[in-house]
């Protein structure tokens, strides 16, 4: 009986659709330090010009401000817009179509993608093992004289775990500081829930925890599909199905949508209303939701400030 009661309370507490970003996550600091160096190292791409940070820049919330990111030898993975690396640890799957189950897989796939870094495990190992600094660092942490590709992905993933942006004004509001949001923003949050945005944009990341179809209310969409869920499952009904993107730091991560064709956030709100709620949102409601979105920008990840 007592157990049931505790469970009931737990469920009720968790019943709020959005949860604040925790201020700390557990990660291995030594591995993350190596990961941080690797993250900014262009040498782990085939042409030696593209690093992880090229497309996941700290100043743009862990994404870039381009519609399409530029990979090695100027290759462009049209029509995909780069998703932010910040808070990626909270996502159920990685990439727009969720083809990576975790951060390690994401790092490997991005590293080996023809349009991104175009590397192989063997080439990666050759590059990092040629670097005495890496050799020393990995030896200290992984206790191995030879750096394997898996160790590289693991270190990068460990660094990415630390890329969280807590303490946005909205999170402060959720944690009890009722003054953290102004009236307009509070109204925006209410509308966000009332219109049903929260049905998909929920959880810690306000998204990232389910796959949904873009344009439920349309029989046909003329947008380019790009790499959608269909690429993974090959099921007809999975066309135009994408991982719900996170709304965290949404104000600083333009452009929007999977193909980055919407540069204006308000326009993105209006479009989502049309595509997936079947509603033409009134302008003042769009403004309120827009205002609410401004409160979703969190602090820069601490690991980026620290020397190590």
């Amino acid at each position: 009986m007592k157990k049931f009661l505790i469970l009931a309370i737990f469920v009720m507490l968790n019943a709020q659709p959005i949860v604040p970003i925790p201020e700390h996550v557990d990660y291995n600091k030594d591995k993350a330090f190596i990961g941080k160096i690797l993250f900014f190292d262009p040498n782990i791409s085939r042409d030696g010009k593209v690093s992880c940070a090229s497309c996941h820049e700290p100043q743009f919330g862990g994404a870039d401000n381009k519609q399409f990111s530029i990979g090695v030898f100027g290759r462009i993975d049209k029509p995909m817009n780069s998703p932010p690396a910040f808070n990626a640890v909270f996502n159920y799957r990685q990439f727009w179509n969720g083809r990576a189950k975790n951060l390690q897989e994401q790092a490997r796939m991005a590293n080996q993608d023809h349009f991104e870094m175009d590397m192989t495990d063997a080439l990666l190992e050759k590059r990092v093992n040629a670097n005495p600094m890496y050799k020393k660092l990995f030896k200290n942490v992984y206790k191995s004289d030879y750096i394997t590709a898996d160790m590289v992905y693991d270190a990068i993933a460990e660094f990415e775990k630390a890329l969280i942006t807590p303490n946005s004004r909205f999170d402060k509001y959720l944690k009890g500081d009722k003054k953290a949001l102004n009236e307009e923003e509070k109204r925006g949050y209410f509308l966000f829930k009332a219109y049903g945005c929260v049905t998909c944009h929920n959880g810690v990341n306000m998204g990232g925890n389910s796959f949904q179809k873009l344009g439920v209310f349309f029989e046909k969409i003329s947008l380019p599909r790009g790499r959608d869920r269909y690429e993974v499952t090959k099921r007809e009904e999975d066309k135009y199905v994408y991982k719900v993107p996170s709304l965290r730091n949404i104000a600083v991560t333009p452009p929007y949508m999977h193909n980055g064709n919407v540069k204006n956030l308000k326009k993105a709100i209006v479009l989502m209303g049309k595509y997936n709620l079947g509603i033409d949102l009134p302008e003042k409601d769009v403004d309120a939701i827009y205002a609410f979105f401004q409160a979703l920008t969190g602090e820069m990840p601490k690991i980026l400030n620290k020397e190590r």
């Binding site: 469920v11 968790n14 019943a15 709020q16 659709p17 959005i18 949860v19 909270f90 159920y92 829930k193 929260v198 049905t199 929920n202 959880g203 810690v204 990341n205 925890n209 389910s210």
Partner: peptide
Amino acid sequence: YASLYLYYNNDLIATDV
């Protein structure tokens, strides 16, 4: 729960899985 309640946190399901 997710089917019945209007407000729902999908993280719970993702975590369970």
